[in-house]
Structures are given as C-alpha cells and as structure tokens.
Deep mutational scan, measured.
Amino acid sequence: TYYTVKSGDTLNKIAAQYGVSVANLRSWSGISGDLIFVGQKLIVKKG
C-alpha cells in the first residue's frame, strides 16, 4: 500500500494510523531520518 504524505503529517501519525512502527515505516520506504515531504509516497505494509 502506498500512502501519500499530506501537509501536517508526521511519521508518528502515519505509523499510528496504520498500526505499524515508525522503524518499519522508515525501512519499507527507505527513509533514514524523520524528514518527510508533502507529496512523498511511503510504502505501508499492514500487519
């Protein structure tokens, strides 16, 4: 599943919304830090 980052989103908010960890969200999407951008597509795998 892809999630497109919206204004005001954080990795914590997105992870909580999908019931996954921030570490997994980073790993799946190839992100090393906490910086995400509006319009960026993140990969989300539901448990």
Results as ranks from 00 to 15, higher is better:
1 T>P: 10
1 T>F: 15
1 T>Q: 13
1 T>L: 13
1 T>S: 12
1 T>E: 15
1 T>Y: 14
1 T>W: 15
1 T>A: 11
2 Y>Q: 09
2 Y>R: 07
2 Y>F: 12
2 Y>K: 07
2 Y>H: 10
2 Y>V: 14
2 Y>W: 12
2 Y>T: 12
2 Y>L: 10
2 Y>C: 11
3 Y>V: 08
3 Y>F: 03
3 Y>H: 12
3 Y>T: 03
3 Y>R: 01
3 Y>I: 08
3 Y>K: 01
3 Y>E: 02
3 Y>M: 04
3 Y>D: 02
4 T>D: 05
4 T>N: 06
4 T>I: 15
4 T>P: 02
4 T>Q: 08
4 T>Y: 14
4 T>S: 07
4 T>L: 10
4 T>E: 10
5 V>G: 01
5 V>C: 06
5 V>Y: 03
5 V>Q: 00
5 V>T: 03
5 V>D: 01
6 K>M: 10
6 K>I: 09
6 K>L: 08
6 K>Q: 13
6 K>D: 04
6 K>Y: 04
6 K>C: 06
6 K>N: 07
6 K>W: 03
6 K>S: 07
6 K>H: 07
6 K>F: 04
6 K>G: 07
7 S>E: 15
7 S>L: 14
7 S>W: 12
7 S>Y: 14
7 S>P: 15
7 S>D: 14
7 S>V: 15
7 S>R: 12
8 G>V: 02
8 G>I: 03
8 G>N: 07
8 G>L: 04
8 G>R: 03
8 G>H: 06
8 G>T: 05
8 G>E: 05
8 G>M: 04
8 G>Y: 05
8 G>A: 04
8 G>W: 04
9 D>R: 01
9 D>Y: 02
9 D>L: 02
9 D>T: 01
9 D>A: 02
9 D>K: 00
9 D>M: 02
9 D>E: 04
10 T>M: 03
10 T>N: 07
10 T>Y: 03
10 T>Q: 05
10 T>H: 04
10 T>A: 04
10 T>E: 05
10 T>W: 03
10 T>L: 04
10 T>K: 03
10 T>S: 09
10 T>I: 04
11 L>K: 00
11 L>G: 00
11 L>Q: 01
11 L>A: 02
11 L>E: 01
11 L>I: 09
11 L>Y: 04
11 L>W: 07
11 L>D: 00
12 N>C: 12
12 N>E: 15
12 N>Q: 15
12 N>G: 13
12 N>A: 15
12 N>H: 14
12 N>P: 14
12 N>W: 13
12 N>S: 15
13 K>V: 08
13 K>C: 09
13 K>R: 10
13 K>W: 10
13 K>Y: 10
13 K>M: 12
13 K>F: 10
13 K>I: 10
13 K>G: 13
13 K>P: 00
13 K>H: 10
13 K>S: 15
13 K>N: 11
13 K>D: 11
13 K>Q: 11
14 I>R: 00
14 I>T: 00
14 I>Y: 01
14 I>Q: 00
14 I>V: 08
14 I>N: 00
14 I>A: 00
15 A>L: 04
15 A>R: 00
15 A>P: 00
15 A>D: 00
15 A>T: 02
15 A>G: 06
15 A>C: 06
15 A>K: 01
15 A>W: 05
15 A>H: 01
16 A>V: 11
16 A>N: 11
16 A>Q: 13
16 A>M: 12
16 A>S: 11
16 A>P: 01
16 A>H: 11
16 A>E: 14
16 A>G: 09
16 A>K: 12
16 A>R: 11
16 A>F: 11
17 Q>K: 13
17 Q>N: 10
17 Q>M: 15
17 Q>D: 11
17 Q>I: 13
17 Q>V: 12
17 Q>F: 12
17 Q>A: 13
17 Q>T: 12
18 Y>D: 00
18 Y>C: 07
18 Y>E: 06
18 Y>W: 12
18 Y>N: 07
18 Y>R: 03
18 Y>L: 14
18 Y>H: 12
18 Y>G: 01
19 G>W: 05
19 G>P: 00
19 G>M: 08
19 G>K: 10
19 G>T: 05
19 G>L: 07
19 G>I: 04
19 G>V: 05
19 G>Y: 06
19 G>S: 09
19 G>C: 09
20 V>T: 10
20 V>K: 01
20 V>L: 08
20 V>A: 06
20 V>G: 01
20 V>W: 03
20 V>Q: 06
20 V>D: 02
20 V>F: 04
20 V>I: 15
21 S>M: 06
21 S>Q: 06
21 S>Y: 04
21 S>C: 08
21 S>R: 04
21 S>D: 08
21 S>I: 05
21 S>G: 05
21 S>V: 04
21 S>F: 05
21 S>K: 06
22 V>W: 04
22 V>L: 09
22 V>Y: 02
22 V>N: 03
22 V>E: 09
22 V>A: 08
23 A>E: 15
23 A>F: 08
23 A>V: 10
23 A>W: 07
23 A>Y: 08
23 A>G: 10
23 A>S: 11
23 A>I: 10
23 A>H: 11
24 N>V: 12
24 N>I: 11
24 N>F: 07
24 N>T: 13
24 N>R: 08
24 N>D: 15
25 L>D: 01
25 L>M: 06
25 L>Q: 00
25 L>W: 02
25 L>Y: 00
25 L>G: 01
25 L>R: 00
26 R>V: 12
26 R>L: 12
26 R>T: 10
26 R>F: 05
26 R>Q: 13
26 R>M: 14
26 R>Y: 06
26 R>W: 05
26 R>C: 13
27 S>V: 13
27 S>E: 15
27 S>R: 12
27 S>P: 01
27 S>Q: 15
27 S>C: 12
27 S>K: 14
27 S>Y: 12
27 S>W: 10
28 W>M: 08
28 W>P: 01
28 W>N: 05
28 W>L: 06
28 W>K: 02
28 W>C: 05
28 W>T: 05
28 W>I: 05
28 W>S: 05
29 S>K: 02
29 S>T: 08
29 S>A: 08
29 S>W: 05
29 S>G: 07
29 S>C: 07
29 S>L: 04
29 S>H: 04
30 G>V: 05
30 G>Q: 11
30 G>L: 07
30 G>W: 05
30 G>K: 09
30 G>N: 12
31 I>W: 07
31 I>Q: 03
31 I>G: 02
31 I>F: 09
31 I>S: 03
31 I>D: 02
31 I>A: 04
31 I>T: 05
31 I>N: 03
31 I>R: 00
32 S>F: 11
32 S>D: 13
32 S>T: 15
32 S>N: 12
32 S>M: 11
32 S>E: 15
32 S>W: 09
32 S>K: 13
32 S>Y: 10
33 G>T: 10
33 G>P: 03
33 G>V: 07
33 G>S: 11
33 G>H: 09
33 G>F: 07
33 G>W: 06
33 G>I: 07
33 G>C: 08
33 G>A: 08
34 D>E: 10
34 D>S: 09
34 D>I: 07
34 D>L: 07
34 D>R: 06
34 D>F: 09
34 D>T: 08
34 D>Y: 09
34 D>K: 06
34 D>G: 08
34 D>H: 09
34 D>N: 11
35 L>T: 14
35 L>W: 11
35 L>Y: 14
35 L>G: 11
35 L>E: 15
35 L>V: 14
35 L>D: 15
35 L>F: 13
35 L>I: 14
35 L>M: 13
36 I>R: 00
36 I>P: 03
36 I>T: 03
36 I>H: 01
36 I>A: 03
36 I>N: 00
36 I>S: 01
36 I>M: 04
36 I>Y: 03
36 I>K: 00
37 F>I: 10
37 F>N: 08
37 F>H: 12
37 F>P: 04
37 F>S: 09
37 F>K: 09
37 F>V: 11
37 F>R: 09
37 F>T: 10
37 F>M: 09
38 V>P: 13
38 V>D: 06
38 V>Y: 04
38 V>E: 11
38 V>F: 05
38 V>H: 06
38 V>Q: 08
38 V>G: 04
38 V>A: 10
39 G>Q: 03
39 G>H: 04
39 G>D: 05
39 G>W: 05
39 G>I: 06
39 G>S: 04
39 G>F: 05
39 G>Y: 04
39 G>R: 02
39 G>A: 03
40 Q>Y: 03
40 Q>V: 05
40 Q>I: 06
40 Q>W: 06
40 Q>H: 03
40 Q>L: 07
40 Q>N: 04
40 Q>F: 06
40 Q>M: 11
40 Q>K: 03
40 Q>G: 03
40 Q>A: 05
41 K>V: 15
41 K>D: 06
41 K>Y: 07
41 K>F: 08
41 K>M: 13
41 K>E: 10
41 K>A: 09
42 L>A: 01
42 L>N: 00
42 L>Y: 02
42 L>R: 00
42 L>H: 02
42 L>V: 08
42 L>E: 00
42 L>W: 01
42 L>C: 02
42 L>Q: 01
43 I>G: 03
43 I>P: 05
43 I>A: 08
43 I>T: 10
43 I>C: 13
43 I>K: 09
43 I>Q: 10
43 I>W: 12
43 I>N: 08
44 V>D: 03
44 V>H: 02
44 V>G: 01
44 V>K: 01
44 V>P: 02
44 V>A: 03
44 V>S: 02
44 V>Q: 01
44 V>R: 01
44 V>T: 06
44 V>M: 07
44 V>Y: 04
45 K>Y: 15
45 K>W: 13
45 K>I: 11
45 K>M: 14
45 K>P: 09
45 K>N: 12
45 K>C: 12
45 K>E: 10
45 K>D: 11
46 K>L: 15
46 K>D: 13
46 K>R: 11
46 K>M: 15
46 K>H: 13
46 K>V: 15
46 K>P: 15
46 K>F: 14
46 K>N: 14
46 K>Q: 14
47 G>T: 13
47 G>M: 12
47 G>S: 13
47 G>F: 13
47 G>H: 13
47 G>W: 12
47 G>Q: 13
47 G>P: 15
